[in-house]
């Protein structure tokens, strides 16, 4: 039974099959993401009620919060696919992990920038050494380290394995870093923490937020599959099926 399952997975993860399947999935993900992002933006920017404390400037959460969620989600994806690649030697998992890294870094950057833009009217400063901001910044450093290691190792297979180990070490450390930063912050400057103590979110704001989050996820799905497809073509360029596609 296990053998049959593994056989199915290996076949499923074969570059050729992946290329064909992802080609069919990408348009679905892409168009759904576009529709959700447009719907979520309209709902979030125009329909959702004004916050009684923060006015209209809170509306940036519809970008900021999903971006922050994605930044953590993508690092998890990288670590899990790294582990899959190390344990079962599925090459496709490596491709997914390395295709995800720049997207994850971009989302992390987006979360930091939108957070900073939001912080200016709310706290009167572009940056505060708040626990969440600081751990998000450290997450960006982890992404940058991952990409730097990947580009430093010439052999792509060795690079993928080294990066998988780094991602797993990083993912074990993320909660430790997060809680130590949170703890550091509560000791150093208690006041900023309470700034995050906002009332629990209203349903009319939650709906656009979730629509946007789903849109971000599907966007990531589409983009990561596009990047992975590209990588598969490059690494498999000497195989027949790739040549057939190119000559077609």
């Amino acid at each position: 039974m296990m053998k049959a399952i593994m056989k199915f997975i290996y076949q499923f993860a074969s570059p050729k099959h992946f290329y064909r399947l992802s080609g069919k999935i990408i348009p679905w993900f892409g168009w759904l993401a576009a529709m959700l992002l447009i719907a979520g933006s309209i709902d979030g920017l125009f329909i959702a009620p004004v916050d009684y404390q923060q006015g209209d400037s809170y509306r940036i959460i519809f970008i900021h919060v999903p971006a922050a969620w994605m930044s953590m989600f993508i690092y998890m994806v990288m670590a899990i696919s790294g582990a899959i690649a190390l344990i079962w030697k599925i090459k496709l998992a490596d491709v997914i992990a390395s295709s995800s890294a720049p997207i994850g870094a971009a989302f992390t950057f987006l979360a930091l920038v939108t957070g900073s833009i939001w912080g200016k009217p709310m706290w009167g400063a572009w940056w505060v050494w708040d626990a969440r901001l600081t751990s998000e910044l450290i997450l960006l450093f982890l992404y940058l380290g991952y990409m730097a290691l990947e580009s430093a190792i010439e052999d792509p297979r060795a690079a993928a394995r080294a990066c998988a180990i780094l991602a797993i070490v990083g993912v074990i450390n993320i909660p430790i870093i997060h809680y130590s930063v949170e703890w550091w912050n509560t000791l150093h400057q208690g006041a900023t923490v309470t700034k995050f103590d906002k009332p629990s979110i209203d349903i009319s704001m939650l709906i656009p937020l979730l629509i946007m989050a789903l849109g971000f996820k599907l966007y990531y799905g589409a983009v990561v599959l596009m990047r992975a497809r590209n990588k598969v073509l490059v690494t498999e360029q000497n195989n027949r099926w790739v040549k057939d596609i190119i000559n077609h």
């Binding site: 450290i138 380290g145 730097a148 780094l166 430790i176 870093i177 130590s180 930063v181 000791l187």
Partner: peptide
């Protein structure tokens, strides 16, 4: 590259020790 990889992971030690 080593400093880029290792320094973020050193942060918890720094926080708790200096604190």
């Amino acid at each position: 590259l080593l400093s880029l990889l290792v320094l973020p992971l050193y942060i918890p030690v720094l926080i708790f020790s200096s604190n």
